[in-house]
Nucleic acid binder design. Structure first.
Lengths: 225, 225
DNA sequence: GAGGCTATGTGACCCAGGTTACAGACCGTA
DNA sequence: TACGGTCTGTAACCTGGGTCACATAGCCTC
C-alpha cells in the first residue's frame, strides 16, 4: 500500500480542494479507508451504501450478468473516478442493477454522507466533478449500446485489444466476458487476427504486431453488422 | 397549448418548490418557454446548451444512429424528466453522442444557467432531483445494454409492445427503429405473434390479444440468445 | 377510379456468432 | 514424472437476424 498523503488524494481528486486541510487529514485516517482484495464482490444485489467511494488504488469493474452465465463489462472504475453506480444508489436510492468486482486489490476512501452532502452544497468545484462523473458515464454507456447493437464482434475485439497496450496478459475467456460473448468465438477471431499477422498469440499472452491493421479493422471494415 | 400555471409547473417538478413565487412566475413568462413542432431535431452534433431544459408537454426521443442508416432508441424524455443529455453537455461539457428528436409537439422551459446553478447550490431538493435524473438514466441504460446484448429480438419486441398499452398505433418501421433492428424482421416476428393469437395486426395498428402470453414470451422463453 | 404514396407480406439467401463436444497444451504440485 | 487444473484449438452444426428483391394492399388526391 503506498502511503496516503493529502497531496496524493488531491492529485487524484482536485475537486476535494475545497475541504479544509484538517478535514482532509481526518478523511485519510486509516479508519476511513477501505481495503479490498482482488476479486472481491463489491456489490451485487442491494447492499447499503455507506458513502461516496473514491478509488485511490486498483480498479473495479462493473458487470452485467446474463441468465445463461455469460457476462459483459459495463465499465471500469479507476483511481480518479468514483463508482457512481453506488453513489447513484446512494443518492437516487435506485437498487443496483449490476455487479461490481475488484479487478486488483483496491484501496478506497469512502466519503461519509454528511461530508458528501456538505461538499455538494457548498463547493461548486465538487459539484462539477460529480456531474462530470455522471455525464461521462452516460456518454460511455451510450457508446456501449451502439457498439453492442451495431458493431460486429471482430471490430469490438480489435478495439478492445488496441485499448490495452501492445502486450496483453489475459485469457480469451476474460476478453469474452468483457465483450459479452463466449470464449470459443474470441479464440476463433483471434486466430483470424493472427492469420493476418495482426497479432501473435501465446498462453495468456497476446502481442499486437500491427496496430494500424487492427485499427483499420476496428473502425472501418464493412462498417455495420 | 395548455395554459401554464405555476401550479402545473410545480406538479410536474416538485423540485422547483424552493424557488420564490416571484421567480417562478418570471420563469413562466412566454419568452422563457420553448415550443417545438413534432419531428424537430433538438440536438445532433454539438449544439450549444442554453440551460437546463424541463419538458412541460410532449416527448423527446434520444436516438443513436448507426452508420448504415439503422437507428435505435436510447431513451425517451417525458414531462417531469429533463433531457439530461443536454444538461450533461451543459455541465460536463461532453459533446453530444446521440441525437434528440421531438416525437410530438413539445413545450419546454429552459432554466437559465444562473438559475440552475443557484438551485443546485442552495436547494437540497433540487439537487436530489437532478441526481435522480442521472442515476435513473444510468440504470436505464444499463438495462438497455443487457437487453441488446443478451436478449432475442422477439422478447424485446414483446416487451416493447406490452409497454405500449393494448392498442398500438405505429408502423413496423418505427418499432424496428426503437429496437435497433429493421422493418422486415419486425414484420416477420409480428406475423409470428399473430399466428399464435397473441396480437392482431392492421395497417399502423396492433392490438394485443393475449397479454399473459406475450408476457411469458417476453421474460421467459429459453431466456438468452 | 387512376395513379402514386406509404405500409406491409414474404420468400430466397447469407452470415455472424453461439453451441457442443472434443483434443491438446501448458503449468503447477505431489 | 504423473496427474489434475486451467487455457486454447478446432470442427460440425444450428439459428437468429439481416439483406435483397419483390408483390400487395390500403389510403389519399386529383
Amino acid at each position: 500500500m503506498t502511503p496516503l498523503s493529502v497531496d496524493r488524494l488531491l492529485a487524484l481528486y482536485p475537486a476535494l480542494a475545497g475541504l479544509a486541510p484538517a478535514e482532509l487529514t481526518t478523511l485519510l485516517r486509516p479508519e476511513s479507508l477501505m481495503h479490498l482484495p482482488a476479486g472481491a464482490q463489491l456489490f451485487a444485489e442491494r447492499q447499503p451504501c455507506h458513502g461516496f467511494p473514491l478509488i485511490l488504488d486498483g480498479s473495479i469493474k462493473v458487470v452485467k450478468a446474463a441468465a445463461c452465465g455469460r457476462e459483459m463489462l459495463l465499465y471500469r472504475v479507476a483511481p480518479g473516478d468514483s463508482c457512481i453506480i453506488s453513489s447513484s444508489c446512494l443518492l437516487g436510492k435506485t437498487p443496483y442493477s449490476a455487479r461490481g468486482k475488484t479487478e486488483s486489490a483496491v484501496t478506497m476512501l469512502v466519503l461519509p454522507i454528511p461530508v458528501f452532502e456538505k461538499l455538494l452544497a457548498e463547493d461548486r468545484g465538487f459539484r462539477d466533478f460529480v456531474f462530470h462523473l455522471f455525464s461521462d458515464r452516460i456518454a460511455e454507456l451510450m457508446e456501449l449500446v451502439e457498439e453492442v447493437a451495431f458493431h460486429r464482434l471482430d471490430q469490438r475485439l480489435a478495439r478492445l485489444l488496441l485499448a490495452r497496450g501492445d502486450e496483453i496478459q489475459t485469457t480469451h475467456q476474460a476478453l469474452a466476458d468483457e465483450l459479452g460473448s463466449v470464449r470459443e468465438i474470441v479464440s476463433r477471431l483471434l486466430k483470424g487476427f493472427a492469420a493476418e499477422g495482426l497479432v501473435s498469440l501465446g498462453r495468456e499472452h497476446i502481442v499486437i504486431l500491427d496496430r494500424r491493421g487492427l485499427g483499420r479493422l476496428a473502425d472501418n471494415s464493412t462498417q455495420d453488422s
